[in-house]
Structures are given as C-alpha cells and as structure tokens.
Amino acid sequence: MSWWKENVASRIRHYPGKMEVEKYVYTPGVHGLEQAKALKEGKILGAKCGDTIYVPPLTLCPDHKPGELVEVRGPWRVVTYTIIAETMDGRRLEKPEVIAVVKPDDAEGGLIHRVEADQVYIGMEVEPVFKPEAERKGTIDDILYFKPK
C-alpha cells in the first residue's frame, strides 16, 4: 500500500478543510448540444472545415471559423491503446480494460474510448456499440465501447 491510501489525517496535526463547491454543471455549448442530440440517435458527429472533417466536433476550425456538423461513418481504426490493470484506488481489475484512441478513416482527430476485443492491435478496424436507444442520455457514455468489425 502507498502512504496516501492510509488514513494519515487522523495521525497528523492538521486543520480540516471542505470543498464548498459540491459539483460543477457544465453547459454543452452550441456544437456540444448538437453532438448530444446525435449521440442519442446513435450517430457520431464531426466538424467539416473545407475538405477535412474533425472529430470530436469542437467549435472551431483551424481558420477560426465554426465548422459544419456532419455525421462521421468510419470505419474506425485503433491508433494507440493501453490496458488498465489497476484502478485509482488500488483495486486489481479481474478483467483488464482496454482504452484506445480510435480514429475514423473519413476524419482527422479521434476519440478516446473503451475497446472490447479478445485481441487488440494498432490499425485494427473497430465500430461503436451504442446503448439501447431508451437508455441513451446524450453523453459520450451512450457509446458502450468499440468492438472489432
């Protein structure tokens, strides 16, 4: 165990402090709102700037103009990946989790997301798996994971 996992506060002389901001409420923004609606419909959006589409659809193109929102269809490919063996609180995962940067062939940029596959390699073709429509909330978690195509 690391030192910070023990309850040191009870053993040292200290002054207690409390976070007075209990939570943050982030507004989605103009493009973010459209992206949320699209995720609910099982679509992933990108921003079209000239001939190039960027994922995720951040507000601005490199020329400082807002892009046009278009659906990205893929196919997606793994650019890089990592395997999570242990969580923040020191718990060993029974089934290691694969986190990857995935990029659609028809766009620049990419997303970070879970990949569920027996075997992962760079360049592997994957596709998004969405939650059932009734459970979607318009967040990035509406995509459960990417799976091999």
């Binding site: 507004t27 989605p28 923004g29 103009v30 493009h31 973010g32 507000t59 601005l60 400082h64 807002p66």
Partner: peptide
C-alpha cells in the same frame, strides 16, 4: 447568468467581434 456556450465558444465570439471591428482576420 448562465450561457449555453462553452468558455471556448464565448472566447471565440468576443475574439471574432474584436477582429472584425478592426477589419482583420486571425
């Protein structure tokens, strides 16, 4: 009090207006 726009979008809006008022681009 509460804007839909993200901080990035607010900054863009003000920056674009300032550039436009000077007749410049980025």
């Amino acid at each position: 009090r509460r804007m839909l726009e993200t901080p990035r979008e607010l900054a863009w809006e003000a920056a674009s207006m300032a550039l436009e008022s000077a007749g410049l681009t980025l």
